[in-house]
Nucleic acid binder design. Structure first.
Length: 667
DNA sequence: CATTAGCTGTTTTTT
DNA sequence: ACAGCTAATG
């Protein structure tokens, strides 16, 4: 496909910073990938002097894949395409000394961070998880705004804000003592570092000569500062964004950063991409109609040359179960009729929990599917356990990891022992593991617990050695053997099935780690940190190649496209979500729906359930208000009593599915 | 220390 | 419905 003049211009423009306002499907990823190719092939840029940044691992993966199709492999050596968090980790690991960390940094995930905060707040006053979450959010905001703990203390006004600031101080101190960072730190610390150290800043500015940022509307303040610092006055910078696709303000994203750019870079050039190469005119008209209900920073109108296309189908379903069966039935029918492939279909939803019903239905029908997003995998207890072992092997100061696994599997180390050890560690001002290694613990602990901990530490040390010197895969299997994890799973799980499943996950993790270790030259610390950032499915191009129905949250679907999209659960309370139903947040929910609609290339089906199970009971639901914001002429409704569909008399999706199977069999 | 029964509150989205 | 926590018991 040829590039249009605007795209060409965006690719070739190198006389300073450039903002590309790119509507959905206007080829923004193409502009970025082609620009990388242009820089390398036509402008003699070294690949390792180019940095491309995205928000999700998925987007980074996609971009890497697309670049490798345009530029040959030897020229790509050293090219960095990564998420903001991975970039932060990279800078932090390079500059750990200046930042005051040892090289074996570990990353606290959300759960660890919340755990630490709970511990700290217990002393102060509260243990209400809501308050903890609130304070966590506040600390996160401070970090996003580049406000240090001591500054926060000075700035705090309201009493509760003072408490939060105090906790922030302690929290930062503890994390540092653990030689650990949280997700926000991965941006905050490197940005502060570049701000405070002229020579480090210069070094990075020299190293990175051109920077490209995708989904720019999702940057928060600290991320923007990081970009600005690296780009410097030279302004080797292209950012691509679309304020209509800003769906991350809940985690601090500031679409205003699009505007901010022209203030910070007076010589900023602006290029708009408005031609859409993805969707039919009908789909686009619906998207434009919907989003016109929002206020806009920049006006733009998307258009397409791909023809009118089919009507959008709106299907009313009885409940979530029949919604799932109905969608599967529609896919089956459509696939048969148009001779398509499973991978041409995507099911998009607001919340991860919705995937369950579709998974069940797909499994029953033996339809292959790909569930997107690694979060589910990493939140599994068995994976977190193993990861905690890994973290402890890397960093003996990681107390969160220590606490998680010291008694998993059971070693007879209970709360009493841990409390004693904890007190001692605090008094000695060292981590739990290091405290247990000191001679002085003998005065605190004795007998069996002491013996157990001693031998546990000895074992850990042999393990550290083994992983460094022996074959990775064998070492990791040994670790699993030594702790008797399989037996523990079998004895604690409710059924053999569950235990087997968990063991399968554990084996999968070990395989990945072994593979990653080889990729990272055996740098176990690096691999473990990467794992925490969920950056692993890297070598699974097969997934998109494989012929599977795609299941994804709306958030995770951004930047992707599918021939036929099923946007499910289009109900009040779900999309828009109950929590975001006030005037300010409704705009973001609308953008979320907009993102969903604009994923579709040729066909779009929107479904909703009239009833949904909620905390036990059954709740009546209403169709989403967003449906009323679509142009009626482009819609075809399928409701139980509408004449539009004979088939729809079948109330349950299951029966509907059976009908279609029968119909197909006859043909 | 481990186990278990009963109690709670809880449901967005991601790094 | 369910997981995660608490308190009581082995």
């Amino acid at each position: 496909m040829q590039l249009n003049p605007d795209q060409q211009a965006a690719i070739r423009y190198l006389n300073g910073p450039l903002l590309v306002l790119a509507g959905a499907g206007s080829g923004k990823t193409r502009v970025i990938t082609q620009k990388i190719a242009y820089l390398i092939q036509d402008c003699a840029y070294d690949a390792n002097s180019i940095l491309a940044v995205t928000f999700t691992n998925k987007a980074a993966r996609e971009m890497k894949q697309r670049v490798s199709k345009v530029v040959n492999e030897t020229q790509l050596q050293g090219l960095r395409i990564s998420t903001f968090h991975n970039l932060g980790l990279y800078i932090l690991r390079c500059e750990h000394k200046a930042a005051g960390y040892k090289s074996n940094i570990t990353i606290f995930d959300d759960e660890d961070a919340t755990g630490l905060l709970r511990e700290l707040l217990l002393k102060k006053f509260a243990k209400d998880p809501k308050i903890i979450a609130q304070i966590k959010g506040h600390i996160s905001r401070w970090k996003n705004e580049l406000i240090a703990p001591d500054q926060a203390e000075k700035l705090a006004q309201a009493p509760w804000e003072m408490v939060a600031a105090n906790v922030y101080v302690d929290y930062a101190r503890y994390l540092h003592a653990y030689n650990a960072v949280d997700f926000d730190d991965l941006i905050y610390i490197p940005t502060k570092l570049l701000l405070d150290h002229e020579e480090i800043l210069t070094k990075w500015q020299m190293r990175i000569r051109y920077m490209l940022v995708d989904e720019y509307q999702d940057t928060n303040h600290s991320q923007y500062q990081l970009v600005k610092l690296i780009a410097g006055i030279r302004g080797g910078l292209t950012v691509v964004g679309d304020d209509d696709q800003s769906i991350y303000t809940w985690r601090g994203a500031r679409p205003e950063n699009l505007m901010q750019l022209s203030d910070d870079f007076p010589n900023l050039n602006l290029i708009k991409l408005e031609q859409n190469y993805r969707s039919t005119t009908r789909i686009l008209r619906c998207a434009n109609h919907l989003i016109s209900h929002n206020e806009h920073i920049f006006e733009k109108k998307l258009w397409s040359q791909l023809g009118e296309g089919e009507l959008l189908q709106i299907i009313s379903c009885k409940d979530e179960e029949s919604e799932a069966y109905r969608v599967i039935a529609e896919i089956t029918k459509h696939k048969f009729k148009h001779n398509t492939q499973f991978k041409d279909y995507a099911i998009l939803y607001r919340g991860n929990f919705q995937a369950r019903f579709f998974e069940k239905a797909l499994r029953e029908q033996n339809i292959p599917y790909k569930l997107s997003g690694g979060t589910a995998f990493f939140s599994r207890s068995e994976i977190k356990d193993l990861l905690a072992y890994f973290r402890l092997l890397v960093n003996p100061q990681d107390d969160a990891a220590f606490l998680r696994i010291i008694n998993v599997p059971r070693r007879g180390i209970g709360p009493t022992t841990i409390e004693k050890l904890g007190n001692y560690a605090k008094q000695r001002n060292v981590s739990l593991l290091l405290a247990a290694q000191e001679v002085g613990v003998q005065q605190i602990l004795s007998g069996k617990p002491l013996q157990t901990i001693k031998s546990f530490i000895e074992w850990l040390q042999t393990m550290v050695y083994k992983i460094r010197h022996d074959d990775a895969e064998i070492s990791l299997k040994q670790l699993l053997q030594d702790i008797g994890y399989q037996d523990w799973l079998e004895s604690t799980c409710s059924s053999d099935e569950v235990a087997k499943n968990k063991m399968g996950n554990v084996k999968e993790l070990l395989l990945w780690v072994a593979k990653l270790l080889k990729q990272h030259n055996g740098d176990f610390a690096d691999v473990v940190a990467k794992l925490t950032l969920l950056d692993m499915l890297e070598n699974s191009e097969e997934d998109t190649e494989q012929n599977k129905v795609q299941l994804s949250t709306l958030h995770a679907s951004k930047g992707l496209e599918y021939p036929y999209v099923f946007l499910v659960g289009m109900e009040e309370g779900l999309l828009p979500h109950t929590i975001s139903i006030d005037e300010k947040n409704i705009a973001e929910e609308r953008r979320l729906a907009y993102v969903g609609i604009t994923r579709a290339q040729r066909g779009l089906t929107i479904t909703f359930a009239r009833q949904r199970k909620k905390h036990g009971g059954v709740i009546d639901t209403k169709p989403s208000r967003f449906l009323k914001e679509l142009p009626t002429d482009d819609l075809q409704w399928f409701t139980p009593n509408s004449a539009a569909s004979e088939e729809n008399r079948q109330e349950t999706g299951k029966a509907h599915l059976a009908n279609i199977r029968e119909l197909l069999a006859k043909k």
